[in-house]
Nucleic acid binder design. Structure first.
Lengths: 222, 222
DNA sequence: TCGTTCATAATAGTATTACTATTATATTTG
DNA sequence: CAAATATAATAGTAATACTATTATGAACGA
């Protein structure tokens, strides 16, 4: 996908001040992506981020209440971007089977992009999603955050693909469960393949993970 | 399952001092289970735990290096216990299909136990596993922790059930992937059902989650 | 029974984290 | 040019995640 000058929109209440609206804001986003990758989310602090970009902590707090809010933002951005890719991948395709196949491909293929959208490195961001995104909703405060709309984009992606599932098999009872299982499972398996390989079945060369989930969906819908 | 006086063994290097060997150690385990449930893992501290059991923080540190080590211990205990239940559930059963079915049942059925093993409330513990266990291995330090054997019991469970999968279908290529997907997926779905219901498909009454994963495995192995 | 070992209690102290507050200095905009 | 606004610079605080020190008390072995 080439640079189409698309703009990924993130909901207003996922930030205190829109990071997309200033140089400092954009630096916060792009630098935090590399820094979270380096340090892990627990090791990442606004102080260290401030040092990296040469700004005081207090300036960063004007964009995000805390580092959790920043994670929520990154996750929302990611799913908003995936949703865009989903729409793009199935437009003009008629066969329900082919539409589903293409959508699943968007979900399970590793992200390899040449910086298509501005200051966000989508490949690095996808690694954060794999490693850290469970922490976005595994908190004591999920229910309030959910009410606040923090997970809207993710839910939107699941909803969209669930509808494609029903187009293929209208009697299938658990489309949302199937799709969220596939998305989360794919993340886990990529993580396991790197860190806990005995929990997965890696064959060198081919992308076993993608083909496993493709097969899983096909057989589940029969 | 009634009280059989079984003793769940946890590996030596998952603690500084064996909590099973003293009154204080056992209080640390049982109270931490209720406290983590109340406060969430992030809100839980050794200070608060100490206040609850009327002992200073420093005494707790003699059992576990930090709260992450305690979580690792709880997770290991849980999977060691599940492994025991697995063995128990298939002993004397001959049909490979029936063995697999029973094993999957142990994995996906909600835990409802009447305090069978000593000071550990397995039902409460299983809720911690559902909500917090991803945090046990989603850290910057996974690889070292893995080398240290921190995840042995979990891997053992996946291995055991993977073998049952191969007994049913010896040509199936991804048994570990299938089983870890089912285990982790089941946790996620139980969590989603409670906090992010639009990511799942809840039907009131029946246990949709269990039957979904049973079906998923059956169809995947065809 | 005495002395040693060992677990726990009581207390104090430290570096880091996750913020909040205040004032000063640029920069933009009307 | 004045006013509003963003950022920088700096300081400060409560809580967290520990470490260290000494004291007490119980258990155990000779």
């Amino acid at each position: 996908m080439k640079n189409l000058h698309v703009h990924i929109k993130v909901d207003d209440n996922l930030y205190s001040r829109n990071p997309d609206s200033s140089e400092l804001g954009r630096k916060i986003i792009s630098t935090s992506i590399t820094l979270i990758n380096e340090l892990g989310f627990e090791g990442f602090t606004f102080k260290k981020l401030g040092e990296q970009i040469g700004s005081p902590e207090s300036s960063i707090y004007r964009y995000f209440e805390n580092k959790h809010a920043l994670l929520i933002y990154l996750v929302a951005w990611y799913w908003s971007w995936v949703d865009y890719k989903l729409v793009f991948s199935i437009v003009n395709i008629e066969s329900p089977n082919e539409r589903l196949k293409r959508a699943i491909d968007v979900l399970v293929q590793p992200v390899k992009v040449d910086h298509s959208i501005s200051y966000v490195d989508e490949t690095l961001l996808s690694e954060i999603i794999i490693r850290e995104s469970v922490k976005a909703y595994h908190t004591k405060n999920v229910d309030n955050e959910n009410k606040n709309g923090n997970f809207k984009d993710y839910k939107q992606v699941v909803q969209r693909v669930s509808e494609l599932v029903l187009d293929v098999n209208p009697t299938f009872e658990y489309p949302h469960m199937l799709i969220s299982t596939v998305i989360e499972g794919m993340h886990q398996q990529r993580y396991f393949a790197e860190h806990l390989p005995s929990l997965t079945d890696i064959k060198s060369g081919e992308d076993a993970i993608s083909s496993f989930y493709h097969q899983l969906i096909i057989s589940a819908l029969k």
